[in-house]
Design a protein around this nucleic acid. Sequence first.
RNA 1: UCCUCUUUAGCUCAGCUGGUUAGAGCACCUGACUGUUAAUCAGGGGGUCCUUGGUUCGAGCCCAAGAAGAGGAGCCA
Length: 480
Amino acid sequence: MMKRTRINELLISDDLDREVVVKGWVKTRRGNKHVGFIALNDGSTIKNIQIVVDLEEKGEEYIKDVTTGAAIQVNGTLTASEGKGQTVEVKASEVIVLGKSHPDEYPIQPKKHTLEFLRENAHLRFRTNTFSAVNRVRHNLAFAIHKYFHERGYYYINTPIITGSDAEGAGECFKVTNFDLNGAPTDDKGGIDYAQDFFGKETNLTVSGQLEAEAGAMALGQVYTFGPTFRAENSNTSRHLAEFWMIEPEVAFADINDDMDLAEDFIQYVIRFALENCKDDLEFLDNRLADEEKQLPQDKRSMPLLEKLNFVVENDFERITYTEAIDILRNCKPNKKKKFQYLVEEWGMDLQSEHERYLVEKHFKKPVILYNYPKDIKAFYMKQNDDGKTVAAMDVLAPGIGEIVGGSEREADLVKLQTRMKEMDVPEEELWWYLDLRKFGTAPHAGFGLGFERLVVFVTGMGNVRDVIPFPRTPKNAEF
RNA sequence: UCCUCUUUAGCUCAGCUGGUUAGAGCACCUGACUGUUAAUCAGGGGGUCCUUGGUUCGAGCCCAAGAAGAGGAGCCA
């Protein structure tokens, strides 16, 4: 029996008038009682192949089950198309319906659906042009990430998903327990006795693999993680998920400048990879975005997707310190005219989304790396600068999505780290092993965390992280 | 968690100041058409107006509570 050929191969083939077998899902069927046209897609490309069925020979009934969504096999001949709109098509000698799709019940119609509706049909939305394109781009970005690090001598390490400490200071955790929720054993003080739980201590789903990655970097030199991350924050925004994927490189003998170089080079590399390997999909997404924004006034529209990606790849990111950013913001028009909801006045304040957006989208009009933040608004493990006021932290801000990377040089000095932990009430006992890394062969090192879904949002031009992960987990939603 | 908005046919939406039998486009079904491109044309079927309670002679519409969804904010990636 002949093997099937994938549609992406057929569409670029110039080996015509040969027997082929095609399998895929029906997008639409058109025609009359004499001839039927089927648009068929198998996921190998966003493009469909046209199947032509001679109904005078087969009879009208022959393709009555070939309806939108049905899975079919077509045996036929690859020929030059007689009609306009495509160069090749398959003249069917036999059409076999592998799986029917009842047209009355199948939710995905050959028309525009809202993203909200498709979210409720996440198991079927892969079959739409938009979501198949997004998922192919997502794959290519994931692949590019591994390729980038591998080619540069980084090791992919897997840090634990179940963690024993909640001292990492990065948001609310999901608890992991084996206790029956009605009647967990209690200790003599009336609290829950975790000593009797599966791990013998309180455990959570990881909020970050960074601390463990640091342990890897302090022996393997340069490592990265790429795994699921969980935050139990009640965040209802287009930028947050309860379960998301994060990339966390960690590099020994690197300082904050090396860290910024890495982040910039890395982001440009993976975008370039997508531009080269996802041409059709990105073109489709470029059109989709333009179409979506058609009704917006000119000044509210974002830069066309492909133009934006090429711009990011070809131009250096702007690098400014937090202090410089405050100066720019303090003297900018919206601040003076009191257009900001939070006015920028004092050094030391945390920057709000509106401020970051102003810097990226209005002032510099390109990705911006902010670094050297006040120590009081950043985490305990960041390297304290000599000025006594700032830490060597950096955030990469991208137009449209905001913070895409957060990173820092890590504090390598044991005493300084311990002092900071005391000041910030971080329990030393739980992080004894993290302190050991400073006790035995400490060295300057740096790293960052990149939210994978935010990267995919940026590259696909989708407006919501829920539409770039197949089955999003958000507050009140764990369907599928 | 806070603020704002939304919830009417399978989908996208309209529904006036509270008043008879709740509408349109698409989808679906039937028919027409010899090469279509989200095919086209004609006809047809299809409703727990998110839920609960209230006001009223009368509620899709007004009031209250709740649920779900979206946008923005906070937290962050």
